[in-house]
């Protein structure tokens, strides 16, 4: 979990050293450390790509919204 924490909080010197040493000697953990960064980057990129897709509100939905707005005005 130190891996996740370091993205949000500056780790103490001891924790940083401990994490570095752990990653140095644990190839799976080192691989996971890179993957966890990629997952975060992809999540942002993926949301951004969807936000610029061609999806549109249906005319019926827009009409419903206009009616709700008119009723609330």
């Amino acid at each position: 979990m130190l891996l996740e924490q370091q993205a949000d909080l500056p780790l103490g010197r001891g924790q940083r050293a401990s994490l570095w040493l752990h990653l140095r000697y644990c190839p799976y953990c080192s691989r996971y450390a890179k993957q966890t960064v990629l997952i975060a980057e992809w999540a942002r990129a993926s949301a951004s790509a969807r936000a610029s897709s061609g999806m549109v509100l249906s005319d019926a939905a827009k009409q419903r919204m206009r009616e709700r707005l008119a009723a609330a005005e």
């Binding site: 999806m55 549109v56 509100l57 939905a61 707005l69």
Partner: peptide
Amino acid sequence: PAQWPDRYGNELYRFALSRVSDADVAE
């Protein structure tokens, strides 16, 4: 307000859909 659905509806909907993935919830 009466012009919001036509003027901004699609863009807001795409943004919402990019976050919640369910079309009904986004709407």
